[in-house]
Amino acid sequence: MNEALKLDVRNLQAGYGDVQVLWDVSLDVAAGEIVAIIGSNGAGKSTIMRTLSGLLPVKGGTFSIDGRPMADASAADLVRAGIAHVPEGRRLFSAMSVRDNLLMGAYLREDKAEIAADLESVYQMFPILADRRGQDAGTMSGGEQQMCAIGRGLMSRPSLLLIDELSLGLAPRIVDQLSDRLREINAKGVAILLVEQDVIAGLELANRGFIVDRGRVTLSGPAKDLQGNAAVREAYMGLGAA
């Protein structure tokens, strides 16, 4: 295992009960990198994310964080190891306040003073969340909820942020805003693994990309190369060859 890698996934197999979804997934994220996973509906993108955050058991293969094997780790162990998962559809605690939602992100932390400071920095990054801190999270717009979900992820002080469907159901202007925030987060040294159906936006943001199809990685490379790849352009962008 390469110790310089933030995340190293080797021949990962996983699924739901008897239904296997991931057959052979190998991918990696270097420290400080943004990596996009691209694929159509049902390709297994979210399953990868759910397995990496400990919601689904690993059935075969393995993955490691900072060189430490984590295939048998619990969800809590993975949070402690630096993974924060921003799930598809936000999954906020809708009847709890924005502030409580953010604080739940720091559930495993004990350093109260630092948590308060991190809360302030999330408010600085997303000022609208500060305005709405006492409001029930479920009453906010989709974009605000996505900000809250990202903020909640940051509250665990992750070194690797998993973001599942950043743009789902959001206006393009909001997606641009969120992409800018992710670049800022990344500039502070947080690696990002991004699942995105909006292939153009995903590859625009990422340094590298992995194409997933039917539970296998079929193609990978620098985002620039994938953007120019004829097969990718035709299958996922609805465009002709460059």
């Binding site: 919601l55 999954r91 605690f93 809708s94």
Partner: peptide
């Protein structure tokens, strides 16, 4: 507090490290 989170969204609670 943990049970309240589980009640509202068990998946999200697990993701954040709630057992």
């Amino acid at each position: 507090f943990a049970l309240q989170c589980i009640k509202q969204n068990e998946d999200a609670a697990s993701i954040l490290g709630v057992n």
